[in-house]
Simulated scan of single mutants.
Amino acid sequence: MAKSTDTTPSDKAPKKAKKPNGFQQFIQVFQMTRKADPNSVWLMLLVFLGVTAVSLLIGFLVDNWITGLIIGVLLGVLGAVFILSRRAERAAYSQIEGQPGAAGAALNSLRRGWIVEEQPVAVNPRTQDVVFRAVGRPGVVLVSEGPSTRVRPLVESERKRLARILPNVPIHVIETGRDEGQTQLRNVAGAMNKLKPQLTKVEVTAVNKRIGSLGSKLPIPKGIDPNRVRPDRRAMRGR
């Protein structure tokens, strides 16, 4: 006789956790933003009511208040979502600000066209000041993390090293932080995208390969892992 094969619940493969749908993601972003920035709720409400009121007023003036109300509600919702998106982006960056590797995490929000080195390219093991690098059409961009006076020698050393092997390629420096002359994390991507393009796409690839041919990998100090310090990209997009 064939042996019976009873399957117990423990024998079954564990079910994969379901990914949150769009509405659940929206609720998560809203809760995260409200916790980090309580004023965002009142601002969203103010925008919604203001836009709806203006649209309703226009509807009364043209003797079609129903259409005005419908359009006002839709535009009010869009306005509130836009405010949530901007505030969520700030909240996401505020969560990683001050953590080791935060500057590298900020580079993850760059649009296409940039080649980002996820690990630091220069490190001060004692102070944990670091320098990250990205290559794009504007040239090479070095993004530092640490007080200006302390991290500047580290940045300058890396800039000179690159200038020797890339004499005709522009090298830009962006210092992250809240001190005078520094760029806040949430503004890093915007500052880089505003740089004037000076290389072609083919040249960008060639420059990156030239840098990669050096093959120098630095040991990463304990506590610095940009792969674990990432801003919530869904929150930054307001989704």
Score class of each variant (00 low, 15 high):
Q184A: 12
T33S: 08
A189I: 04
T205W: 14
L78E: 08
I171L: 06
P38R: 11
V207I: 15
A17M: 09
P138K: 11
V169W: 01
D232Q: 02
A163K: 10
S4H: 12
I71M: 12
R234P: 01
D37C: 04
P38I: 06
L69Y: 05
T5D: 14
I171R: 06
A13L: 13
W42Y: 15
P221I: 05
S94G: 03
E97D: 15
Y93N: 00
M32L: 11
V169A: 04
L107K: 08
V155I: 13
D11G: 15
P138Q: 07
E89S: 08
G181L: 04
V143E: 09
V51T: 04
I96Y: 00
A17R: 15
E145F: 02
N64S: 09
L69W: 10
G139S: 04
T7V: 15
V155W: 00
A80W: 07
I83L: 04
D37R: 13
G212Y: 00
R87K: 14
V155T: 11
A13C: 07
L57T: 05
K222R: 08
L57V: 13
F132K: 01
A103F: 03
K160F: 09
G215W: 03
D129M: 06
T127G: 12
E203A: 12
T7I: 15
V202G: 15
R230G: 06
W114E: 08
V173A: 06
Q24A: 11
A17K: 14
G136Y: 03
P125K: 11
D232R: 00
G22M: 13
R133E: 12
T205K: 15
K196I: 12
A206R: 11
S216R: 08
L84A: 01
A13T: 12
G22C: 01
G223N: 03
V121W: 02
R86S: 04
S216Y: 03
S213R: 06
P197C: 00
P170M: 05
M192H: 01
K160N: 13
L57P: 03
V116W: 02
S144D: 10
V188D: 00
V54K: 08
V155H: 00
I71A: 14
V141K: 02
P100W: 08
L107E: 02
R186K: 14
P38W: 10
R230M: 14
G22Q: 13
G136R: 02
A17D: 11
Q198F: 06
A53D: 08
E145H: 02
M236W: 02
M32D: 06
V188H: 01
A106F: 01
N193Y: 11
G238Y: 04
N124V: 07
